[in-house]
Design a protein around this nucleic acid. Structure first.
Length: 772
RNA sequence: GGGCGAUUAGCUCAGUUGGUAGAGCAUUCGAUUGACGUUCGAAAUGUCAGAGGUUCGAGUCCUCUAUCGCCCACCA
């Protein structure tokens, strides 16, 4: 990382920062009135940033309500709420930078900009993090502590994470309206969740089903299909003699309850066996009776073309059993141990039982052969636990069930029409009401929707929104009640489960803007004058492509259903930030980079610019210190060029408009062309390109050519030409400071504050340069 | 198995509707006591993964192939 060729001992080769206490520069421009003494040293980001951020915060302009009158048209972004599981990493820094660029640009363009911040309680992720910490430090489980104490501990942890996150975001220059900050688990959001749940329950779109779900024995909770991560596993594939058949399996431990042997109806090898025929055979714990089932789901080419089924613990088997109305028996309990049906193996963990079962079958002469086998096993994203499908009572969102939409402003979906949630999700992207950047992610999106099954939303953890359903049992008759509040009467108990964290984040674009209070259910429109009416739908949703399904799609679902609108008109997807070798940042590799360190070392402006240039939407971005270091130099270049321009304006009349020389006029025309070009890039969300052009134009056109050339005139005798060049350099400098500001807000605002301006405003609310 | 993306200078990547190949970092040579301790000028390095096609013209559009990466999927 260090530059070994650099022999200058005064220079810190790691950061490029100049050692303090050297006043050499103080002698160069003692006579220039306009050059503030701060300019006598290189730009000092560390001294500047906190002070400038305070200036912005104190101005109140982060809050759209305080912006000057010219700001009328709303422009809204909701910050993807970071999980309160830890501190922000460079991926968050990219998001914050891009969103801040969008917000600052539009604020300068005169929009009424709202960037609404918040944090996400991240249910499972947070609870399992705190559980791990407690287990490590105190050797206790959540059951030792109990629900109340556990939630208290999580609350304390969350407060700490939250404060760090906010501090980090501010350090990175985020111009969020902190007065509107929200949390996915605060009271207002909880009310929004209960309201949303009830509406969908009443419409039959949320239902309780006794269905097969993804059970995580480690986390002791269900998870949704999207929270599964497939991990390649090398294991054995066993062939067992099963009466007259040979069956293949990778999971001998599930085979106790298998009383059905299934084959394809067209499989000629087994045409002698008829559907429904009973066969007596010797099995693990003695003789059993098995029924022959013919089903087209069987792949004749795989294994022997015959399999037994375990409907309780396999999605596919469950479906086969459902089709033929077969018994379903539980073999494995929720702790991953064998049930009494396993006989002598009961109570054993499946991992240890497997080999013992195979040994027994071997002893009975029932093992045909064993092969090596590589397959993908389902694990839980957060805990890493091996998913064990189980049949359970859980809550689901029905995505394929037709319902009548009450209110709709969505193109092609009139109010009162019958649709499904799936239709809702695909239509708005299909008809371009929502634009995805880059557009090819639309294909991925549709692909996902096509395969989408009902969304399991209940979780058996404690941290989260409690399922707003109450039960009571009177004379063996179960009553179920769903409402905004607990029912009146004796004997009701609330559902123990909590909701998937994405259920509350799916409401984020409108739960943060005053929904449901701000929504008029009679007209189907937001009540006039409310945040909801003003700022929703939002303009852009900027996030990583990795949560397109988890979050983005579900926001579209919820906004469409509850408000009859799109939640945002653009989706900007940034890539994953990787290290300079292209590896993901991870705790095990210990290659993480803390944005705070980047700011401390190179300055926030450099950090922001270095992660924006060349960061194409949808494409993974490699982080490198070299890129940041180059931009730290750029910040100083802006600083020095500003000093030079200022130092030659002592005798300039700022209220004058001198006649320009042909050459200076040409520079002004080129500036205009540049502004036109950049503005187009900004409007079309090509920040990776705009930033690169800005860097090049400032350094290699303005500094290297225009300023260099101006020196002859500045130090020459032609007074008219000098006035012209002074005007031209001053105009280009002030124009460029505005253009750079969204990208590098601190250094530009600091310079702006040192300029001899009349009618001084903060640069952050100056007008974006007009193109001629 | 299905889908998506990438492949451009030594490294990291831009290249917007097709019009003479670009930047940063690294390298080499030179300059630099009137903005720049973080400066300037110049140089070198590319059959734009490969093959075919469309076109007056292709890094860019189409087809196929290769390699790498990612996402999705209940093959027991």
């Amino acid at each position: 990382m260090t530059n070994e060729n650099n022999a200058d001992p005064r220079k810190d080769t790691t950061t490029g920062q100049v050692a303090a206490g050297d006043d050499k520069k103080a002698r160069i421009y003692p006579e220039s009135k306009l050059v503030h003494e701060k300019f006598l040293k290189p730009f000092n980001a560390q001294e500047t940033e906190a002070r400038i951020y305070k200036l912005w915060e104190d101005s109140g302009y982060f809050n759209p309500d305080n912006l000057p009158a010219r700001h009328q048209t709303p422009y809204t972004i909701v910050l993807p709420p970071p999980n309160v599981t830890g501190i922000l990493h460079m991926g968050h820094a990219v998001a914050i930078t891009l969103e801040d660029i969008m917000i600052r640009y539009h604020r300068m363009q005169g929009f009424k900009t709202l960037w609404l911040p918040g944090t996400d309680h991240a249910a499972i992720a947070t609870q399992s993090k705190v559980e791990k910490d407690i287990s490590k430090k105190e050797g206790k489980t959540r059951y030792d502590l109990g629900r109340e104490e556990m939630l208290k501990r999580i609350g304390e942890f969350v407060q700490g994470s939250h404060d760090t996150i906010i501090k980090q975001a501010k350090t990175f220059g985020a111009s969020c309206d902190w007065s509107r900050e929200a949390f996915t688990l605060d009271d207002k959001r909880n009310f929004a969740v209960r309201t949303a749940f009830k509406a969908m329950y009443d419409d039959g779109l949320i239902y309780r089903g006794h269905r097969i779900v993804n059970w995580d024995p480690k986390g002791q909770t269900t998870i949704s299909d999207d929270e599964i991560v497939y991990v390649e596993e090398k294991t054995k594939f066993y062939y067992f003699k099963y009466g007259p058949f040979v069956i293949g399996t990778s999971r001998p431990e599930t085979k106790f309850g298998d009383k059905c042997v299934v084959m394809h109806p067209d499989d000629k090898r087994y045409s002698a066996y008829k559907h429904g025929q009973e066969i007596e055979l010797e099995w693990i714990n003695g003789p059993i009776k098995a029924v022959v089932i013919k089903d087209e789901a069987i792949d004749m080419a795989f294994g022997t073309g015959v399999m037994t089924i375990t409907p309780w613990h396999s999605m596919e088997d469950f479906e086969i059993a459902r089709r033929h109305n077969l018994d379903k028996e539980q073999i494995i309990d929720k702790y991953g141990k064998l049930m009494p049906v396993a006989g002598e193996f009961a109570g054993m963990k499946i991992t240890e039982a497997r080999q013992k079962i195979v040994d027994k079958l071997q002893a009975k002469g029932l093992v045909e052969k064993v092969e090596d086998y590589v397959h993908n096993v389902a694990t839980a994203e957060r805990t890493g636990g091996m998913i064990e499908p189980q049949i359970m009572n859980q809550w689901f969102v029905a995505v394929n069930k037709p319902f009548i939409i009450k209110h709709s402003q969505i193109n092609g979906i009139p109010a009162g029409s019958t649709i499904t949630l799936k239709d809702l999700m695909s239509k708005v992207v299909l008809n371009n009401q929502i634009e995805i950047i880059p557009d090819y992610f639309g294909k991925t999106y549709f692909h996902w929707i096509e395969k989408l099954n009902d969304w399991c939303i209940s979780r058996q953890i404690w941290y989260g929104h409690r399922v707003p359903v109450w039960y009571r049992n009177i004379n063996g008759q179960e009553e179920v009640y769903n409402g905004l509040e607990a029912p009146i009467g004796e004997g009701w108990t609330q559902d123990e489960d909590t909701l998937d964290t994405w259920f509350s984040s799916a409401l984020w674009t409108f739960s943060t803007l005053g929904w449901p209070e701000a929504f008029d259910s009679t007209t189907g429109l937001p009540k006039p004058g409310t945040d909801l009416a003003l700022f929703h739908p939002t303009q852009v949703l900027e996030t990583g492509y990795d949560i397109l399904f988890f979050w983005v799609a579900r926001m579209i679902l919820m906004s469409g259903y509850h408000l009859g609108t799109i939640p945002f008109s653009k989706i900007y997807l940034h890539g994953t930030v990787r290290d300079n070798q292209g590896r993901k940042f991870s705790k095990t590799l210990n290659n993480g980079v803390d944005p705070m360190e980047v700011s401390a070392k190179f300055g926030t402006d450099a950090g922001r610019m270095g992660i924006v240039i060349g960061n194409t939407p949808g494409i993974d971005f490699k982080f490198s210190e070299d890129k940041i270091r180059a931009q730290a130099k750029f910040a100083n270049k802006i600083w020095n060029a500003s000093r030079f321009v200022l130092s030659n304006l002592d005798d300039f009349d700022f209220s004058s408009t001198p006649e320009l020389t042909e050459e200076d006029q040409k520079s002004m025309d080129e500036l205009n062309t540049f502004i036109v070009d950049i503005t187009k890039d900004m409007d079309e969300y090509r920040f990776y390109m705009a930033s690169d052009k800005i860097y090049n134009y400032f350094w290699h056109d303005f500094a290297d050519i225009i300023i260099e050339r101006s020196k002859t005139t500045i130090f020459g005798q032609d007074d008219k030409a000098k006035k012209s060049v002074q005007y031209m350099t001053w105009t280009i400098l002030t124009t460029l400071l505005k253009v750079i500001h969204p990208f590098m807000p601190f250094v530009t605002e600091e310079i702006w504050s040192l300029l001899p301006l009349t009618n001084r405003k903060l640069l952050m609310i100056e007008e974006w340069p007009k193109q001629k």
